[in-house]
């Protein structure tokens, strides 16, 4: 077992003929991911990356191949549309890698997604991977190894570092999920923590948060009820304050969202919070 992706994942790649799309499709196939179709409007009927059939729309691709997950490598201008298209076609799991989608676009997309059964991971995320089964994203596959630690992270590259450190210590991962750092995203820490809690293979969870927002505080509340041990790290502890304008941000956050607040919230929920990323693997190893 693992969460969200695995052997049963039948992946469609939106934007498969683009530079990033083509490159990463090749990488994903090389890792063993079951890529069943690609979508590029206007190029349907062709083939991409060897033997992946291209369709003009996600709905067509789903009907023809039974795809159940979609990954989006479409420029920010068009990505909101791609997410909606995938959700409309009834794809259960949508992963959006694209960075720089306007926040107000995501606001509407998320409102629509809430009315469907689709789950969105991202945007602005590295995707997710279940080692030895399916890599659905842009992370380097070789640093992962299969095991019992679940990872969930708002950061991209920091996740790779932690995964690599775990692998170096001989600690494998069940699934590593990057939920993305955008203000409005599809899946929150709590959503993924809940999945890990219910996953029999996952024995421990690593959570990598960042400053800003209150997602980590909400996660802390959820962790109190979790049976599995959680190790966390908060990036941005030394970030200098920007030149702030306006009061709305301060009023709405009520002074929350700083690294210190998040660390405090997590620690009081019984989470071990690492002081630097290198410590995460140590803390996980102690509890193995």
């Amino acid at each position: 077992m693992s969460i969200l992706v695995g052997k049963n994942t039948r992946l469609v790649v939106q934007g498969i003929t683009g530079r990033e799309g083509a490159f990463h499709t090749e990488q994903m196939i090389a890792y063993g991911t079951n890529v069943v179709a690609g979508v590029t409007p206007g190029k349907g009927g062709g083939w991409a990356v060897g033997n992946v059939p291209i369709f003009d729309s996600v709905a067509e691709a789903r009907d023809a191949t039974g795809a159940n997950a979609s990954i989006i490598y479409v420029p920010a201008k068009f990505a909101p549309d791609s997410i909606l298209e995938a959700a409309h076609a009834g794809i259960e799991l949508i992963i959006c890698i694209t960075e720089g989608i306007p926040a107000l676009d995501m606001l509407k997309v998320r409102a629509f997604l809430d009315t469907t059964k689709s789950r969105l991971i991202g945007p602005n995320c590295p995707g997710l991977i279940t080692p030895n089964e399916a890599k659905v994203g842009i992370m380097p596959g070789y640093i992962h190894s299969r095991g019992n630690v679940g990872l969930v992270s708002r950061s991209g590259t920091l996740t790779y570092e932690v995964v690599y450190a775990l692998t170096q210590r001989g600690i494998g991962q069940s699934t590593a999920v990057g939920i993305g750092g955008d203000p409005i995203n599809g899946t929150s820490f709590v959503d993924v923590l809940r999945l890990f809690e219910d996953d029999p293979e996952t024995k421990q969870v690593v959570m990598i948060g960042e400053i800003g927002g209150t997602d980590e505080e909400k996660a802390a509340d959820f962790i109190r009820e979790m049976t599995k041990s959680v190790t966390a790290f908060i990036a941005g502890q030394t970030a200098p304050p920007g030149k702030r304008m306006g009061h709305a941000g301060a009023i709405i956050s009520g002074g929350k969202g700083t690294a210190a607040d998040k660390i405090h919230a997590l620690e009081s929920a019984g989470v071990r919070v690492a002081k630097h990323p290198g410590e995460i693997a140590e803390l996980v190893a102690e509890r193995m």
Partner: peptide, 8 residues
């Protein structure tokens, strides 16, 4: 090469 990495 990534903001979170810069932060750390």
């Amino acid at each position: 090469n990534a903001t979170a990495r810069a932060w750390r």
